[in-house]
Design a protein around this nucleic acid. Sequence first.
DNA 1: CGCCAGGTTAGAG
DNA 2: CTCTAACATGGC
Length: 295
Amino acid sequence: MIHCAIEKPVLFSYEECLWFLDRNLDECLYRVENGEVVRALCIGGETVLFRISDGGDVLRLAISDGGDKHMPAVEAFVRAWIDFDTPLERFYEQLREVPALSYMPEQYGGLRLIGIPDLFECLCWCVIGQQINLSFAYTLKRRFVENFGGVVEKGGHVLRTFPTCSTVAELHVEQLRALQFSGGKARYLTQIARAFCNGDISRKHVEPLPRDERLRMLMRLPGVGPWTANYVLMKSFRDPDAVAVGDAGLLNALLRHGLITHKGESSRIDELFAQFAGYRAYLVLYLWRSLSARA
DNA sequence: CGCCAGGTTAGAG
DNA sequence: CTCTAACATGGC
């Protein structure tokens, strides 16, 4: 067991981030227990288990034995996953300028944009979640991971890793249909997996491109439309201005705040987001956050 | 039973 | 380019 402490950034709330990580009880890629996050991570062919806990001014990381040499990679993953490196001061100023949103820095202060660093995982999660309610989406993801992903058992924990593209590329549509995936989702998932295996797409290819090119590259994949492409920019590439256009939850949040009176007021939405240049993705996150009551 | 859900696609006009 | 139906199923 090796430990490490990361200094928390300004405007960081362990509690808020933990709330986000724990808000859905059916998450299968990590566990939240006793205020700690436990997760498995594949690094260079090895699977290491790590644990995150609150250490006051620091975040504590612990890696289970054997994984000592992977601490730098785990630390880098956690920093990226929980978005340590975005300063939020300016965003909170922007929120305070909009009366309907001015409560947010107080209510959700320190909430960070928890990402999905792996591009393949992020795309699969989008396809799984399209046009179904979130709880069913988590059910489908669990079935997907439990049936086709990896398992690690260490120190009394059973943890799972996301299926690899080579595994998913070999799946038959009927295997996914049996898990109650629609025919469309089943086809998209296997086709996207093949695109990764073929090298038709990879993070390395997409990352260097400007936003429009990234969107275009992503939308060439089957099952990837504007919503998914922007969601991927937000959660996997950390584009600060990516907005999941037309998102059902986002529209509901805008309605609840009286920022629009009916869905389809795209010009008014554009105006609002224009005020949040540099932090549009964070505005989406905080609006999503507002849809869930505090536990 | 009906309507909506972290949408996308194919086909028609 | 815009509009529509179909997709499959759960939650309410």
